[in-house]
């Protein structure tokens, strides 16, 4: 099988200046800065096949963005190798850039003060696209991403959702083979998030795109990705398909009940009580066999319930859960 991305024993350490405290500390750190090493990524290996869409997950500080920066050639690994389609990104920065598209949710690549079209024409020149190629891709993306009606509008007048669609189109205009998405739905409302996910699915299947996605929103991962990589503290803790992750994780949802009056311990069949407050109790819905109907039926008999909700697990909880349910799992 051909790999789009091969990461082999990659470690990245930063040297950071350590400012000393005290009245004269600043002077010492100016003259003789104390440096300490920080390991952001530690001996990480994985592969991504061509055409896969991979969710790259981990809590804050897990080295996610460092890894994305290394895969895109912004940073160079301290040791180990990364190959994108057989090339090391930082050694072939220019050729590599032709084949990757990057969207950073919080950093725009569009020219803020100018109409959308100008950023695209700039990329046409920057990526040396032929007229034919540019027009074809442009027409395709304008239609799929529904950009046409704000194509001539200045970027600063766009809504966040419109802007993100334009960012996506811009990252795809040169027909990259690999698309890196760093928090592409951050700050968007639910409708706009939905639209972005749908479009990404469509483009991915139509263009055989390899996608690497980081997100805090599990729904993004669920709807866009077929595979998941989970890292924590710079180390790989899970690599496999979403189904494997589900099987691995066990409990997937959390039931939260708020009471009007102080209430003692209360059991609900098919769930486990994990947080027992007088007014608010949390339950893990453990096995898939427990249906929502079953739970609803049980809740009906309890009075003084103000509110209840079933929540998705957060990324932090998934990481914890993967840890709980056994050691590092790898299935390719």
């Amino acid at each position: 099988m051909e790999f789009a991305i091969e990461v082999c024993n990659v470690t990245k350490t930063y040297k950071i200046a350590n400012n000393r405290d005290g009245n004269t500390g600043w002077f010492h750190s100016l003259v003789k800065p104390e440096r300490k090493e920080l390991t952001a990524v530690s001996d990480l290996s994985f592969q991504v096949s061509t055409g896969d869409s991979v969710g790259y997950l981990g809590p804050n500080g897990a080295g996610k963005s460092t890894m994305i920066k290394m895969m895109t050639g912004i940073l160079v690994p301290t040791s180990g190798t990364i190959e994108l389609r057989g090339r090391q990104p930082h050694l072939h920065r220019k050729e590599n850039a032709q084949h990757i598209g990057v969207v950073f949710g919080q950093r725009s690549q569009l020219w803020w003060e100018l109409p959308v079209v100008d950023s695209f024409e700039l990329h046409k020149i920057m990526y040396s696209l032929s007229n034919y190629c540019y027009e074809r891709n442009k027409n395709y993306l304008l239609q799929v991403l529904e950009i046409k009606n704000f194509w001539n509008q200045s970027v600063r007048q766009l809504s966040l959702g419109q802007r993100m669609r334009a960012e996506l189109a811009l990252a795809l205009i040169h027909e990259p083979k690999i698309l890196f998405l760093d928090e592409p739905t951050i700050g968007l409302d639910i409708e706009a998030k939905e639209a972005v996910r749908k479009i990404l699915r469509q483009i991915q299947s139509e263009r055989e795109l390899t996608i690497i996605l980081t997100s805090h929103d599990l729904q993004d991962i669920r709807e866009i990705c077929s595979k998941v990589i989970i890292v924590n503290g710079g180390e790989l803790i899970f690599e496999g398909t979403l189904d494997t992750l589900r099987a691995q994780m066990g409990p997937e949802r959390r039931l939260v009940i708020t009471f009007a009056k102080p209430t003692g311990e209360l059991r609900i069949a098919g769930t486990a009580l994990i947080s027992n407050d007088k007014f608010e109790k949390h339950y893990l819905i453990q096995d898939r066999a427990t249906s929502s109907g079953n739970i609803l039926a049980q809740l009906k008999d309890i009075d003084n319930i103000v509110d209840f909700s079933v929540r998705e697990l957060t990324i932090e909880e998934i990481v914890k859960s993967v840890y709980r349910n056994g050691s590092i799992v790898k299935c390719s």
Partner: peptide, 13 residues
């Protein structure tokens, strides 16, 4: 510091 410099490094220019 803002990270916008990174965006330039993923471009072919």
């Amino acid at each position: 510091r803002k990270g916008t410099f990174d965006l330039l490094l993923v471009k072919p220019a």
